[in-house]
Structure formats: structure tokens, C-alpha cells
Amino acid sequence: MIKILVLYYSQHGNTRQLARHIGRGIEQIDSCEAVLRTVAEITTTAAITPNAPTNQTIDPIVSHHDLSQCAAIAMGSPVRFGNMAAPLKHFLDTTSSEWLSGTLIGKPACVFTSSSSLHGGQETTLQSMMLPLLHHGMILVGIPYSEPLLHTTSHGGTPYGASHVNHGINKQLHPDEIALAQAIGRRLATIAGKLNG
């Protein structure tokens, strides 16, 4: 079984929904299993405010063992001022030993994000997540324009990765966003299968 890590941070649940659909796309490919993991919150007295939303999830917290066991990674974060969220960046900053040992070299990876506005920084956030993956020697996978929905969607979805636009009124993913999330999951799994075949 080819294990593909779907690693994400989600504060309000939108990025988590994308992770679930990417996982469903992964598992549409024979012999591939999606392993969903999240990252720990950063808990400092300066960052904690009463009644602040938290990364509420039933998925386990990622471990460094998960990185060595996976054949590929799908990584997601909500948009934070055009960048990935601090908890995900904090975890990535602890992966120096994997970088030194080359644990992730040659493994495929894709990225995904969500935001509350169409022009809220989705593409820069996707690119910010790509940078550490490139430093780890991973092979980046996007959504090609052979996916017809990429030409027509007025919701989330970019050639850089799957995405969701909340528009502040509806937390449910649009069918286009679901289809594109599953498409990138299938593509990631297909490439991981070929590289591990």
C-alpha cells in the first residue's frame, strides 16, 4: 500500500474539507492510502484569546515518522496575509533532520489552501508552501489545464493547487472545488504510484 500524507492546518474547517476531498481522490487510485494529519497549535499567551477558534479536528498530529513513511505529501493551509499559517510553518521549521538526511527527496507533493475572499492571497500562499518542499527536493504537482473545470470555475482551484473561496457566507465547498481537489489527489497518487512501481 502506497501511503500518501495529507498534512494540513485548518482553523475554521475549510482547509480540512479540502484535505478530506484530496484524500478521497488519492484513494480512487489502486493501492494508495491517504493518511490525514494536522499540526499542533502554537500556544503562547500572546497568541491565545478567549473564544478564539482552534484547529478542532479528529485527525492525529503529524510526526516526523509520518514524513519518512509517506510516498508523497499533499500540504494545505488557510491564507494568512498571503502566506501559510504559522502552525504549519512552525512544523516545517522542525524538519531539518529530514532535510539533512534527504528523507523527502524525489517524492511528489502538492499544495492546497482556502481563503475568505477571491483575491485574498491564495496563489502566494500556495507558492509559500512550495518553497520548503523544493528545499526538501520534492517534485511539485499542480493541476493541469487538461482538467476542464480549471477553465470555467469562478470559485476555487488554480494550476498551483486546489483551493476554496469562502466569500464569508458559506463554509461548504463548491462542487467545482471538490472536483478539483479530488483531481489533484488522483494526480498525486498516480505519480506516486509510478515512482514507486
Rank of each mutant, 00 (worst) to 15 (best):
residue 1 M to E: 13
residue 4 I to W: 00
residue 8 Y to M: 12
residue 13 G to R: 05
residue 15 T to S: 10
residue 15 T to Y: 09
residue 17 Q to R: 14
residue 19 A to M: 13
residue 21 H to L: 09
residue 23 G to Y: 06
residue 32 C to K: 03
residue 33 E to Y: 00
residue 34 A to T: 07
residue 34 A to L: 13
residue 35 V to M: 12
residue 35 V to G: 00
residue 35 V to C: 14
residue 37 R to S: 06
residue 39 V to H: 03
residue 40 A to R: 14
residue 42 I to K: 06
residue 44 T to C: 10
residue 44 T to W: 09
residue 44 T to E: 13
residue 44 T to Q: 07
residue 46 A to D: 13
residue 51 N to L: 12
residue 57 T to I: 04
residue 58 I to Y: 10
residue 59 D to F: 15
residue 61 I to P: 01
residue 62 V to T: 13
residue 63 S to W: 05
residue 65 H to K: 14
residue 66 D to H: 09
residue 70 C to N: 01
residue 72 A to Q: 12
residue 73 I to F: 06
residue 74 A to D: 10
residue 77 S to V: 01
residue 83 N to V: 07
residue 84 M to T: 01
residue 90 H to T: 15
residue 92 L to T: 03
residue 100 L to T: 09
residue 103 T to D: 01
residue 105 I to P: 00
residue 108 P to L: 08
residue 109 A to Q: 02
residue 109 A to M: 09
residue 110 C to I: 05
residue 111 V to A: 10
residue 115 S to W: 07
residue 116 S to D: 09
residue 118 L to G: 08
residue 127 Q to C: 09
residue 127 Q to I: 10
residue 128 S to F: 02
residue 136 H to S: 11
residue 138 M to L: 11
residue 139 I to Q: 09
residue 145 Y to E: 00
residue 147 E to P: 01
residue 147 E to D: 14
residue 149 L to Y: 04
residue 151 H to Q: 08
residue 160 Y to K: 05
residue 164 H to E: 02
residue 165 V to P: 01
residue 166 N to W: 05
residue 166 N to G: 08
residue 168 G to S: 10
residue 171 K to I: 13
residue 172 Q to C: 06
residue 181 A to P: 02
residue 182 Q to Y: 11
residue 184 I to E: 11
residue 187 R to H: 14
residue 191 I to F: 02
residue 191 I to S: 02
residue 192 A to L: 01
residue 193 G to T: 15
